[in-house]
């Protein structure tokens, strides 16, 4: 398997600081985005990213090309660190806290409505079981291939599809009213 990060990993293992910086710049957005989709906390997501890269420096010295892609390993580490943090904050009781219902008052700006919807979608995503949330984050938001997402989650493609389908159905059940509004807007030609 040709790893697009292979040369950088070899340089990092040899102690090349510039290669390490280039590697961070290449991956930091995807790592923090995945962590944020899982944790819904930008500060915690940055802490996770820092931990992931520290582990990556250590792993670079041991890495043997030809197995899984290094990026796949990094996403797996990111998810595991997120699962650890989610376990620690299991006491969080009300995932809808802070998610205000959309104010139907006339005159409310479209931007305000979009923000309210975004909050509700984010809150609903936060209530999904972790593995379903991770599957949606990898496939929908990170646009990973099925095989790669399944590899990150360490499941078969069939199991990945099951996680995705259950997550999507649950999201729809929680936000049927928002979905109706959105589809109505599409029908009215108000959104692209």
């Amino acid at each position: 398997m040709n790893d697009p990060d292979g040369d950088l990993i070899a340089a990092i293992a040899a102690g090349d600081a510039r290669a390490a910086d280039a590697f961070v710049r290449r991956h930091v957005h995807r790592v923090t985005a995945l962590a944020q989709r899982m944790l819904h906390d930008p500060h915690e997501a940055e802490d996770v990213a820092q931990e992931v890269f520290l582990k990556a420096w250590r792993e670079a010295r041991r890495w043997r090309p030809g197995q899984a892609k290094f990026q796949t390993w990094m996403h797996r580490v990111t998810l595991n660190l997120c699962y650890d943090r989610l376990r620690k904050r299991r006491e969080v009781s009300d995932p809808d806290a802070g998610a205000e219902t959309a104010d139907p008052a006339p005159g409310a700006s479209e931007m305000w409505l979009a923000q309210q919807r975004a909050r509700r979608v984010q809150a609903a995503l936060a209530t999904l079981p972790e593995r379903q949330r991770a599957a949606i984050a990898l496939c929908h938001f990170e646009e990973m291939s099925q095989a790669e997402a399944a590899s990150v989650l360490e499941v078969s493609v069939d199991a990945l599809e099951s996680l995705l389908a259950r997550g999507r159905r649950a999201l729809h059940a929680k936000l049927a009213d928002v979905a109706r509004d959105l589809m109505g807007e599409v029908g009215d030609g108000r959104t692209a």
């Binding site: 910086d21 961070v24 710049r25 923090t32 820092q50 929908h140 938001f141 599409v186």
Partner: peptide, 29 residues
């Protein structure tokens, strides 16, 4: 399926991390 796609499309975007995080990671290295 289109309705669920629209819901996911309404999720808040995630901004790229700033240079501060990149510098912090370099420092920790």
């Amino acid at each position: 399926a289109r309705a669920i796609d629209a819901l996911l499309g309404a999720a808040p975007p995630i901004a790229p991390p700033g240079d501060l995080l990149v510098a912090r990671i370099a420092r920790s290295r």
